[in-house]
Amino acid sequence: MLFSQAQGRRVVSTADADTVGLIDGYVIDPTRQQVVALNLKKTAGSGDVLPWPDLLAFGDDAVTVERSTVVVEADERIAELSGKHHTILRKQVLTTSGQQIGKVQDVDFDPADGRILTLILDNQVQVAGTNLLGVGSYAVVVRS
């Protein structure tokens, strides 16, 4: 599933069938090539982070969670990964041979486990998620 496809999707709690928020962004851990949390908007409380392990299912129409309390404030690790420096979208991509190959336009991930499958660049180039090395303030680095 693409980041852009799931953007704005409802997150629903199965305990009381309430919408707890809408998907607003993705927190990824580049060293594990994994989506580790979702950023939500329009949440009831002050928390706006949904850690990936607390998801029940990533469905085509909604994301389900057990109860609304799984939406928390970012812990240290997630806050560090979700900073502006670590957003992956629209960032230039450098290969380990020192070549700029494009900018990240979208990311394909596995809704079952959050694995990053493919980076899709603005020039239609696709990079396998397993080649992702890091996302920093300057660039996304991928193995060439």
Binding site: P30, K91, L94, T96, L133, V135, G136, S137, Y138, V141
Partner: peptide, 12 residues
């Protein structure tokens, strides 16, 4: 002037 970039994506 070429940037030196780490695997983590930082230009150090």
């Amino acid at each position: 002037k070429l940037p030196v970039v780490t695997f983590a994506g930082e230009d150090i």
